[in-house]
Design a protein around this nucleic acid. Sequence first.
DNA 1: CAAATATATGAACATATTATCATATAGAAG
DNA 2: CTTCTATATGATAATATGTTCATATATTTG
Lengths: 103, 103
Amino acid sequence: MTEIQQRNLTPEKLEKAAYILKTVAHPIRLGIINLLDAHEQLSVNQIGEYLKCEQSLLSHHLTNMKIKGLLKADKQGVQVFYSLREKDLIKLLDCMENCNCNM
Amino acid sequence: MTEIQQRNLTPEKLEKAAYILKTVAHPIRLGIINLLDAHEQLSVNQIGEYLKCEQSLLSHHLTNMKIKGLLKADKQGVQVFYSLREKDLIKLLDCMENCNCNM
DNA sequence: CAAATATATGAACATATTATCATATAGAAG
DNA sequence: CTTCTATATGATAATATGTTCATATATTTG
């Protein structure tokens, strides 16, 4: 109660961090991030094939991630190409891979 | 569909990573991790005072994090001192602080 | 042993998240 | 203009998560 914390994590920052982590904390969405790290941009169809994910469900996830600022979408004709807006998100994956968190 | 992914993230790893991230993705639980990074070990009461969190709710969160292997508990008399089992979890916080994810 | 304190637990409830399904829209091609 | 393909959307259903409250347990102290 008297000591000082190392990190400068205000309650607001904790909220924000939790919000982002929550957006990321789902196997499909992690899969999307992983793919878009390796591919720069992919269409919904391509992502669906990679992840073996049904179109509607995938679309919901993509829309969600876009709304929350994690992805950007580029419509080209009928297709929509998604890419990472926050490249740094990948660091989370590296982090998860490198840490000993039972992985 | 023909290219090779950089990362070695199998579906199982994605599941596991999502599972851990989900366990972490909550303001109170991030607060706990942050505290336990700075303090080595703290009693439930101490954590509750820091985080202004009601005892029962906090206890639920702590128990949950313990079950999922993120924390360890050390009972000393009436008190229970919690500490991080996975020190590496802290990297997630660093990661969140350093990345531009709207923080 | 009674009382006080620290923590845990379980049920009930509220809320949020995820998945599914049916349907809509928009562009391309015939 | 009809059909086909790619994607989005909205409603619903299924499931999971977070919170609260009342109560239990264990330990310490008088």
